[in-house]
Design a protein around this nucleic acid. Structure first.
Lengths: 178, 178
DNA sequence: ACTGAAACCGTTAGGGC
DNA sequence: GCCCTAACGGTTTCAGT
């Protein structure tokens, strides 16, 4: 569905395969949808200066071209607050084999306890956000997923006391237009 | 934006009041909607063993009661990959005044460069995920938001080399019912 | 300069809820 | 009533003659 990024056969234009460029209308639309994707075309038409049908056409196009990856519901932070969230910073072995790393990555991505998994620069290599019902479940996760893994040299855990903000929205502006 | 757990100070925040319990149908619905909130009631009815009209009723109720906080579009990771993401770990001054902290928190939450802001245990106090168009914009953010702030003792930045996974989904199961 | 295709837009009418 | 979808007609752009 979505092309791989940045294989720059053409320097500027290949943001997404089927999507030439994003014009200011697309930018406005994407920002609105990142805040509320259940807004009706009529409602969006009041914000974006387009007709409802033009809105729906563009949304359709943005989705088909893969600019919009998915549409999801976000549960209440209050609900999340009843659970346990942890930040896990992982240091890998310097000479870890790629095969072992691939297995680790795959296992982490497959686990629905893992909310985010980022490769980072610095003294640690991987950065996880982990969610669990309680400490027992987190310990089970750590024991089975992290402690035994041969590619992991060490890891450090910080527990989230309070989530003040969490979003995946990317703020776009005119400079993101093609 | 974020509700305190179980504290009903404002109508929108009191989650469990309007929502007595989540039964297994609600759990299944929430898991489905966290993956795809544009799924039609008919499609959901094939997964969840309920009629389409019952589905829409329940979704309506979950939204009104605040269990579902919001519905959003998530942009392509490929688009995000063109930008710069950073993890910023912040250590506050031991004797920082609450007033200064509140100002800092508010400024961080108001910035749309800040994707997540978490209070954590451990040697650092705050945990940020920051998105910026490029290094220049990130530096501008760090200079204006972090470097000058009196409440901040020090901060460490790790740059995201590759985002392998990012979601806000909370995996629910039968034990979350009741 | 002319033309035809393509990509837009906006307005409609029909169907569901 | 509102909402979504599909189809129609008008406008602009641009390549090629």
């Amino acid at each position: 569905m979505l092309g791989e990024i940045g294989v720059a056969d053409t320097p500027e234009k290949c943001i997404v395969v089927a999507m030439k460029v994003l014009d200011p209308f697309d930018i406005a639309l994407l920002n609105a949808l990142q805040a509320d994707n259940r807004a009706t075309a009529d409602a969006l038409a009041r914000t974006v200066a387009l007709s409802p049908s033009a809105i729906t056409r563009r949304i359709r196009r943005l989705k088909d071209s893969g600019v919009i990856d998915r549409d999801v519901s976000v549960l209440s932070p209050a609900l999340a607050g009843r659970r346990l969230s942890a930040i896990v910073q992982i240091q890998l072995h310097d000479h870890a084999e790629e095969a072992g790393l691939a297995v680790l990555r795959q296992r982490l991505l497959a686990s629905n306890h893992v909310q985010s998994c980022l490769e980072v620069s610095g003294s640690f290599d991987l950065f996880l956000t982990v969610t669990a019902r309680d400490m027992a479940e987190f310990n089970a996760f750590a024991d089975t997923m992290l402690a035994k893994d041969a590619a992991i040299r060490r890891y450090e855990t910080s527990f989230v006391k309070k989530a003040l903000k969490q979003t995946l929205a990317i703020p776009l502006d005119a400079r993101d237009a093609g």
